[in-house]
Amino acid sequence: MAAETVEMVVAGRTGWIRGRVDRRLAAFFDEHPSPVPDPEVSAAYELLREFVLDGGKRIRPVLCYWGWRGAGGAAEEPRPIVDAAAALELCHAGLLIHDDIMDASATRRGRPTLHRALGESPAILLGVLAMTWGDELLATCGADPVRLRAARVRYDAMRTEVITGQYLDLLAPTRTGVTVDQTLTTIRYKTAKYTVERPLQIGGELAGAEPALLAAYSRLGLPLGEAFQLRDDILGMFGDPAQTGKSCLDDLREGKHTVMIAHARAHASGPAAAHLRQWYGNAVLDERQAAGIREIVAGTGSLAHVESMITQRVGEALETLTTAPIATEAREALTALADRIAHRKQ
């Protein structure tokens, strides 16, 4: 198939699954109004609805769908996979709400974070509610019971892994000399598994995937998920807030432990090292000090190093795709998506 035709098919099918997931989420919110007639509770439910429906790239639902198709799941049998994909988006929303609280982020998706709008305690509750609703939606997706149990094992593992990764992320600021390898471990558990590996495997399990394909999804998902987070770290420092929906100062003020910063600290000296020590993780950092950090990250070769890591990981993922026992359309779609995930602008 010609490259432009593949792109059109992938874009069309990807747009289709995003639209189906959005409609399912909207219907789910319609089916789950506040159980009490309190206007403030209803307003909080509406804020959660807006947070889920009015933004997000739907990467996890899209990958879940292609995991399903790669294992032979039919395009004309959408309900189980659409519901499962929507469940992943609800789980993701809950995790984002909590992540924003832990990071003290002011904006998400171009609007105030929920804890800024409602307060931390209400936002924590809404995050738990979103994850609870994800469980409900997956449990009632209508899949074959045996396949659903297998998918649930992957889903439960995903939640344990991402919470463990988040805990590692919280521990990092309390530790000195965090290495690149330690940072990569956090990335693997906080992001790579729950962004790519597990969504692919959940979709595959729902379609009855063989063990060889599920193993290939892991070999594909982990490096691609790491590339996703490495790109996210670059966007957090160098991205355009108009495209990312987040301030490019948040990660710097938080002192987020990234591979770029671990590499820069290992290679900076003199005034550059002093600038990193003084300003990275400083809550009063402004754009002038941030510009200095960006110059150091670029000047030490740390930005280029991370770009090369992304390229390497995308190459590993693509190599897996060439030999994986996966349906042709899904192979082509995942090949195209790998590049988009790793080189996105938002």
Rank of each mutant, 00 (worst) to 15 (best):
V284W: 05
P145I: 10
L114R: 02
P112R: 03
T186H: 02
L25C: 05
R18Y: 05
G245E: 04
R23M: 13
A87Y: 00
T258Q: 02
E329I: 15
E205A: 13
E319C: 14
P122V: 04
L249A: 09
P37K: 05
I326Q: 03
A274L: 06
R344S: 05
A209E: 03
H267D: 09
M309R: 14
H263T: 15
L47F: 05
E7S: 14
M102L: 11
G142T: 08
R18V: 15
T328M: 09
H98D: 13
T328A: 14
A242F: 11
H305A: 07
A342F: 01
P223A: 04
A298Y: 04
G281M: 03
R20G: 12
W68N: 03
A172Q: 12
I234L: 06
A274F: 08
A264C: 12
E31G: 13
G225M: 03
L249M: 02
T323Y: 03
A216H: 04
E226D: 09
H257P: 00
T195Q: 02
L88T: 03
P173K: 06
K190V: 11
R265A: 14
T176C: 14
H275Y: 05
W66H: 01
A192R: 00
L129V: 07
R13N: 11
V153F: 05
A209W: 02
M8G: 15
L96W: 05
V9T: 12
F29N: 03
C64W: 00
A274M: 11
A117K: 10
G208D: 07
G270N: 15
L63D: 02
L235I: 13
S302R: 01
M309K: 10
P199I: 00
H275S: 10
A212Y: 06
R253D: 09
V62D: 01
D156K: 09
G177C: 10
F28L: 07
V41I: 07
M1K: 09
E210L: 11
T191M: 07
P173G: 08
E7A: 13
